[in-house]
């Protein structure tokens, strides 16, 4: 019977590539977009994980060296060129310190305020730089299911029109269209789920790094403030 023959061939065409190839062009566009979104999501996730790991290791290393350093100027010369958020916060503090203490009369209160402002601004800038790509993850995680749903709705509408055209509602006519339509939602969820998970995890890690930078800045500010009193 031809029904069984159809079923046999349809079962063979349930692979992702075949589902994509037999889809409508709108659904194809949705699928391509969602696939790119998925690739971009994973690129951000992997790149972010690598960078965060590197950042954390450098912060650990920097804090160790900072604790062991005796002379601040000598330590500053050593770490000035480092491409690390915490080194930049340190450099911003040192630079502001030098500017404020180079003159004759030292305004202690004003110097403390400026030091805090300069280092806080650097921390904020570094955190912004770190969290730059995270909004992509948030966007993809929020939108991809809806885009996939749009592809599914479109595909199911199309398969209903084909049912109407063929005057036949047997499973062999309905199944391929619905399968390819549901494939769009599958890709949408496939892109969205890692994006949402990664967004939440990475937000948490960025917050941790920000808190750590702030702690370092506060500690360094306390050190400079102490030296400011001794200077006077």
């Amino acid at each position: 019977m031809d029904v069984f023959a159809n079923l046999n061939t349809e079962a063979a065409t349930l692979s992702p590539v075949a589902l994509f190839l037999q889809a409508d062009w709108v659904v194809k566009g949705v699928m391509i977009g969602l696939l790119l979104a998925s690739i971009w999501t994973w690129a951000i996730i992997i790149g972010f994980a690598l960078r965060m790991g590197k950042t954390r290791r450098r912060i650990d290393q920097f804090e160790d060296e900072y604790r062991d350093a005796d002379d601040m100027d000598e330590f500053h010369r050593r770490v000035a060129g480092r491409d690390t958020p915490i080194a930049r916060v340190f450099s911003a503090g040192v630079t502001e310190w030098r500017r404020s203490t180079s003159g004759k009369g030292i305004d202690r209160e004003g110097t403390r305020e400026r030091l805090a402002t300069a280092m806080g601004a650097t921390v904020a800038a570094e955190v912004d730089k770190l969290a730059d790509r995270l909004n992509w993850l948030a966007t993809i995680g929020a939108v991809a299911p809806f885009v996939g749903l749009f592809g599914t709705v479109w595909g199911i509408m199309r398969s209903f029109t084909s049912i109407a055209a063929e005057q036949n509602s047997s499973l062999a006519v309905v199944a391929p269209g619905i399968a390819e339509a549901l494939f769009a939602t599958a890709i949408g969820l496939f892109a969205a789920i890692p994006a949402v998970i990664a967004y939440n995890r990475f937000s948490h890690r960025v917050n941790k790094v920000e808190a750590r930078l702030n702690r370092f800045a506060d500690g360094f500010h306390a050190t400079l403030s102490r030296r400011l009193e001794n200077e006077g």
Binding site: P16, V17, L35, S38, I39, W40, T41, W42, A43, I44, I45, I46, G47, F48, A49, L50, R51, K54, R133
Partner: peptide, 19 residues
């Protein structure tokens, strides 16, 4: 930067392998 480039490469490769 380089880590994002690495991430993009790994992601593309992973998707090709998966599908």
């Amino acid at each position: 930067d380089s880590s994002e480039g690495t991430g993009l490469g790994v992601a593309v490769l992973g998707h090709v392998l998966l599908f």
